Simulated assay, not measured.
Amino acid sequence: MNHAFFIVKVVKNPVHLMSKDYETVEIKVEFPVSRQKNSKNEIILLLWGDHRTDFLKYYKVQDYLLIEGIITLTSTNNNNQVKITVKRLYPFLLL
């Protein structure tokens, strides 16, 4: 099953992707702490619909998020890229 929950930190500003039928936002995030030195730490979130507008309205770089979504892995040549289509998005506070 590829459904998961993550706590992530927003690293870069969102990139708007537009199609004929829909608009999405692509955001590069990373895990707060990497467990292994050689592990991949960055993933890309795909937001659409209300999640896209809420993110653009309320969140910025350096914010922490609790996300629930579906994981997809794309392979091009020798490069594997992990993308998560977000189903739910919540702010996360570290105290």
Rank of each mutant, 00 (worst) to 15 (best):
T76N: 10
T85Q: 12
K20F: 13
L47F: 05
Q81S: 15
I44V: 15
D21S: 15
S19N: 09
M1I: 12
Y22A: 06
L56G: 10
I7H: 01
V8W: 06
L93P: 07
L94V: 11
D21A: 11
S34C: 09
L17K: 10
N77Y: 08
P14Q: 08
I7N: 01
L46G: 06
V15T: 15
K57M: 07
E68D: 09
K83W: 02
N77S: 10
V10P: 01
V29S: 03
L17P: 01
D63H: 09
K37H: 14
F92H: 05
I43F: 01
L95Y: 12
H51C: 08
N78R: 12
W48M: 11
K37F: 06
D54G: 13
N2K: 07
E68P: 01
I71S: 02
I27F: 00
N78E: 13
V10H: 06
N80R: 14
L93F: 15
R88I: 03
E30A: 12
T76R: 12
Y59C: 11
L45R: 06
I27T: 03
P91F: 10
E26R: 10
V11F: 02
E23I: 11
M18E: 15
F31P: 02
L73T: 11
H51K: 06
S34E: 15
N41W: 07
E30L: 09
E30P: 00
V33C: 05
T85S: 08
N78A: 04
T74L: 11
V10W: 08
Q36P: 01
V11L: 07
K12E: 12
S34R: 15
V33E: 10
S75F: 11
M1Y: 15
N38Q: 14
L45E: 03
R52K: 14
I70T: 07
K87A: 03
K9L: 04
L66R: 02
I71E: 00
L45W: 00
R52H: 08
S34D: 12
P32I: 00
T74E: 14
V15H: 08
N2E: 08
V86S: 04
V11Q: 01
L47I: 02
A4L: 14
L65E: 00
N79T: 09
K40T: 03
D21M: 05
H16Q: 15
A4R: 07
Q81I: 12
N13H: 13
I70W: 05
K37Y: 05
K83M: 11
F6M: 02
V11N: 02
L45Q: 03
D63S: 08
Y59A: 03
I70C: 05
E42R: 08
K9I: 05
Y59V: 05
R35E: 04
